[in-house]
Design a protein around this nucleic acid. Structure first.
Lengths: 146, 146
DNA sequence: TTTATATAGTTGTATATGCAACCATCAAAA
DNA sequence: TTTTGATGGTTGCATATACAACTATATAAA
């Protein structure tokens, strides 16, 4: 567990989450400036639903790596903003299937534009090869820890 | 702002913070299993103080990239756990200087061991060169967005 | 059929966070 | 010296989160 102390020693910033905090805050700022009043966390739920509608809350929890209780309340808030609806699954009345409303679906283009803008701002002065490596590394970290 | 859509397109997971969430959760789990009942956020404050005591709350806010109100309440919780104390600066009575208590100082070794363990688990199967690149990339992201 | 077990989701509680508004203190200008 | 503006910190509020305990439903075992 102390195999690579040299590399790890300078990597505590990763543990403090500074880069992710900065990224998340910038996304929210960009969304707000585009007139979209959702949080970055709500964005991540919508992003999953833009990829595939009708997911259960469990599936959303897995895809966004959150506790299912966090999903309950995120969906609560998205329902209140009339961006998604809960539909009880007839074949298993325990589960809710989450669908986008027309407004929720309509938001996709504008939101993804802001998401792309945010990533471009974040990765300014980072060459493509390094971006690719960082992407793979974060992916491996997730696989290691999930 | 849409200069590198290809690289960005597969990088939305970075925006959702999955890797950081996984990392933060694992750190807290490792600390708990070592009998240390602090959150990963509290760890990041203590980490800054282990590097340098007597920081102001503003300085802590900058170093951990958090809103100063978040620092107020993190310090509240750390004071309640008797890990740090607030000392009013005599030369400027607006500012609090934050010092570790004996318990807070004592925690360093055990906590840093768990932090190193967490990073090692996270970076398992990631070679040193990639770790280095990821580190630099996250650093650049932070610089771009801060 | 009844019982036991597993799964999907919700609620209570404690913690964390950003933003806006606020108070206290300091420093510079008038 | 008084006023003005800047800075450090706190509080109110809404949101997000994990964990534990709970309800409701479904499935498997007896």
């Amino acid at each position: 567990m102390d195999k690579n102390p040299i590399e790890a020693t300078e990597f505590y910033d990763f543990l403090t989450g500074k880069a992710y905090t900065a990224l998340s805050r910038r996304l929210q700022k960009n969304l707000r400036e585009a007139g979209i009043e959702i949080t970055s966390e709500q964005w991540s739920i919508l992003y999953a639903l833009w990829e595939e509608e009708g997911l259960t809350q469990q599936e959303l929890a897995q895809r966004t790596f959150r506790d299912k209780t966090a999903i309950t309340r995120l969906i609560d808030n998205l329902v209140r903003r009339t961006l998604v609806i809960r539909v009880t699954d007839d074949s298993d009345r325990r589960t809710n299937l989450i669908y986008l409303t027309k407004s929720g679906r309509h938001l996709k283009e504008k939101c993804m534009h802001q998401a792309n803008k945010t990533l471009a701002e974040a990765l300014h002065n980072v060459d493509a090869a390094h971006t690719q490596t960082a992407k793979e590394t974060l992916r491996q970290v997730y696989i290691n820890l999930k």
